[in-house]
Design a protein around this nucleic acid. Structure first.
Lengths: 254, 254
DNA sequence: TGCACTAACCTGTATATACAACTTAGAGAA
DNA sequence: TTCTCTAAGTTGTATATACAGGTTAGTGCA
């Protein structure tokens, strides 16, 4: 029953776990092939395969003659791939945490009412959270939710279950619309993100539909210096291979 | 000099070429490891690595006991409108024009060489253009093209046929990778875009693949105050999750 | 006929070995 | 001191070998 994983996969898991646990940090040295041969009792080719695949998947970078080093994950997420920032961060093996700044009921007005296709004065919940990756702020989530769609929204502990996780648990999303902008954040946003004046923010404005109507409208501010969106398009070749190969166009550790 | 590729890479290229040429069609059987051992004069482990990586990259699917088969990837190319800003602008009923600032041959180094997967010093063409919508600058295109991919690049009048239009006329694109960032542009970029100091830029960094290798690397700067990216996402029961949903991305003038 | 079994494939993994190329620390010479 | 060169360690690749397990066609028995 317990299908034993291949040895090379066990090695990969072991190293990924150590990275996830923070035991190995970006640019730290990963045990060399020969060290793995001795400590893990495998052949060098098996250790080579484990480290090579971790390199292909972006977890580590290998330099002939020097060694293998933990990649400096730069925050990135997939364009148009609507996903939970908590999952995104955890998918990088990092720790997600968040703080709830505001969680209240308001009457929709102006832009919000228009975006949600409701009359002025309709009840909406206003949520303001800061999301942290390994303790560093990476997103300010300023979200409005149609109260009739998620009536128990104010009772949720949104620091534990993120708004988008909670909302998708209520009903599947049908459609999402995103706008990406570069903008100068105001002082409040700057303070939440811990960025200096003059640094731009990457702003994602997202509307999500469920049951045929828009149910939530969110402004997501990210620090321009620490966050980027990646998109990937493949007509004929290479559908799979997780996040694979392609993504690294930055990160030389200096 | 022509650094000889590893044997396993030669095998991969060979099979990709046969797929690209239509000689091997989806669900066709690919030569088995043992057949490659005999016909290509390699060891089985080398053939195994080639086929295994092709599997990881989605070109083929392998079934233990049965064999290796060309993946059934679906029909081609949307994204082309994304590739060409001239079409996007004209699609809005506006007038596109562009000015060529630089069109020269350089030796790849640092980030460029890394992004294009070539050695330092490899010939690349450097193109710098400014694109205008109704006379207003909307994009600075800073592009590097593998010289071996587009040897006649310097003879083109890129103000008439945009670089991306010219490149797609040479060979179909296999894959595109995009990164979106918010950043403060330098003085040169600011001047080209006609924006004041302190205004952020929305930067799209795009790499495109053809014939299995990255062939061009472009940085596209847009004025943050006048440009945004919009995307649309629908999660219908698309069996192919990874590719199709990430596709539609269009620029909109505010 | 119908069925079970087997032989011949195939992929998946693991090991031992070998050589090449690269990097760096340190020994040793000027 | 400063420079050069070497030795050790590292990754990258290639091969030969071995065994496990999945799949299929075909043999041969009932």
């Amino acid at each position: 029953m317990n299908a034993l994983k291949p040895r090379y996969q066990q090695l990969k898991d072991l190293i990924i776990d150590r990275i996830s646990a923070g035991e190995l940090r970006p640019s730290d040295r990963v045990p060399s092939e020969n060290e793995l041969v001795e400590t893990m009792n495998v052949s060098r080719m098996t250790a080579n395969r484990a480290l090579r695949e971790l390199n292909d998947e972006g977890y580590v970078e290998r330099v002939a003659g020097r060694g293998t080093f933990v990649s400096d994950f730069r925050s990135q997420s997939h364009l148009l791939e609507v996903q939970n920032i908590a999952d995104e961060i955890r998918g990088r093996g990092h720790t997600h945490s968040s703080a709830v700044v505001r969680q209240s009921c308001q009457h929709a007005r102006g832009e919000i009412a228009k975006a949600l296709h409701v009359d002025q004065g309709t009840d909406v919940f206003h949520l303001l959270l800061v999301h942290y990756e390994n303790g560093t702020p990476v997103q300010v989530e300023d979200r409005h939710v149609l109260a009739s769609f998620a009536p128990e929204c104010l009772e949720q502990d949104l620091a534990v279950v993120t708004p988008s996780a909670y909302l998708t648990s209520i009903a599947p999303l049908q459609e999402a619309e995103q706008v990406v902008r570069a903008a100068m954040p105001n002082a409040a946003i700057r303070q939440h993100l811990g960025i200096p004046e003059g640094e731009p923010a990457l702003v994602v404005i997202r509307r999500t539909w469920s049951k045929g109507r828009p149910v939530t409208f969110a402004r997501l501010h990210h620090p321009g210096s620490r966050y980027e969106l990646t998109g990937h398009y493949t007509p004929p070749g290479t559908p799979r291979s997780t996040s694979a190969d392609v993504v690294r166009l930055e990160t030389l550790k200096k």
